[in-house]
Design a protein around this nucleic acid. Sequence first.
DNA 1: TCTGCCAGAATCGTATACTATAATAAAGTC
DNA 2: GACTTTATTATAGTATACGATTCTGGCAGA
Lengths: 215, 215
Amino acid sequence: MARTSHRNRIYDDYLGRIQRGEIGPDDRLIDTAIAAELGVSRMPVREALMKLAHEGYLVGTTRGFKLPDLSHREILDIFEIRRLLEPRAAAAAAEALDAATLDAMARAVSDAASTLDSGDITLFFRASEAFRNAWLGAVPNAALRETIQRYLSQVQAVRLATMRDPDAHRVIIEGLQALLDGFRRRDVLATQDRMLRFVMAAEMTYQKLAPGNDA
Amino acid sequence: MARTSHRNRIYDDYLGRIQRGEIGPDDRLIDTAIAAELGVSRMPVREALMKLAHEGYLVGTTRGFKLPDLSHREILDIFEIRRLLEPRAAAAAAEALDAATLDAMARAVSDAASTLDSGDITLFFRASEAFRNAWLGAVPNAALRETIQRYLSQVQAVRLATMRDPDAHRVIIEGLQALLDGFRRRDVLATQDRMLRFVMAAEMTYQKLAPGNDA
DNA sequence: TCTGCCAGAATCGTATACTATAATAAAGTC
DNA sequence: GACTTTATTATAGTATACGATTCTGGCAGA
């Protein structure tokens, strides 16, 4: 009867929670616990969590699944990939974005800008995520979009590490505003350049604020 | 006792088979059949195959797992990603390659070149795969390496579609020779350029020989 | 001969149960 | 009081079983 399986519903559910930042770095996702909560057996939960792990959104430990804690090196390695992919993806999205999505992006940017005064970290997180998901959703190359999405954990880790620094906060918001302007004008080249600058700014900020160098 | 789980052993086993081209486009991988063959239950086999599917090496159908049959569009989309990533990755590998790996690559290229006369398609396939795995193994950025490896299915599909054309065959071997020269001389910029040319040559050849346009 | 339906078989999704293993807590020793 | 060793327990891994679903092939009727 079910139009989709338990496994897929649970997968969608937890992917959404991860994207919205509802899973903390210390949370442990245990199949039996989730299964009991949902009134199903371990297996569909286990399979959903393993799928998230195979896609990089979680890592399995001997004691439950948790968010990956990326090392300094891994974060820098992924920055290298993002520098290569995201400018091109953003440029392609600039040609494809529709008005409704642009409006949503404008709202996200103004939400984010408002947190410069309010210091509302949660809103800033949500607005950044909304902006990113909006333009990514408009990338016509599905494979490219999915590859970029898989680095969600890195984006969130960087955000977490840099968010509380006022300078970084300001730099990011200026970057978002510049990007929004490029997207709005459907200026492919400007968008490409600005996305590269945006990623590189994030990288430099991260390097400055990074918590030493772990494994 | 087992140093690793059944699941992981089966995963490694079948990933190897896929890489070596031992799984045909019409083969169906059925968990119960493999389980019976190995003397284990369905579950570890099922989980191994699902992991391969989550990583893009297989797709699940209602009747077993099989190789993904990428559409024309998907193949072109992945070419766009490869154009962005592989030149940079090859350039980084050029700095890191050791002598033994270079020797292995030289052997792969000469094996591949020998098939111009012999027409030994299997050897050409194996040699191309060996060359690719060799330089990819030397890419220092692990995340980049893994992302590129995930497009194995596309590489194989393109190889399959272009391999039998004599012109394409020759173009590929010339590209391999040019790449080998770049790698050998540890010439980062030349390697980067040549890898871009190599990928673009494959793309153009594929477009010329491509089997129409399916879904 | 073609088309639609039905029965059977193959395979998937899920449930439950058991074992193995690794983290944690507890107990003992120096 | 710190360090080692031994229970305890939580959780992962695997096995087995069964109902649900979806192909497949044959049969009936047009």
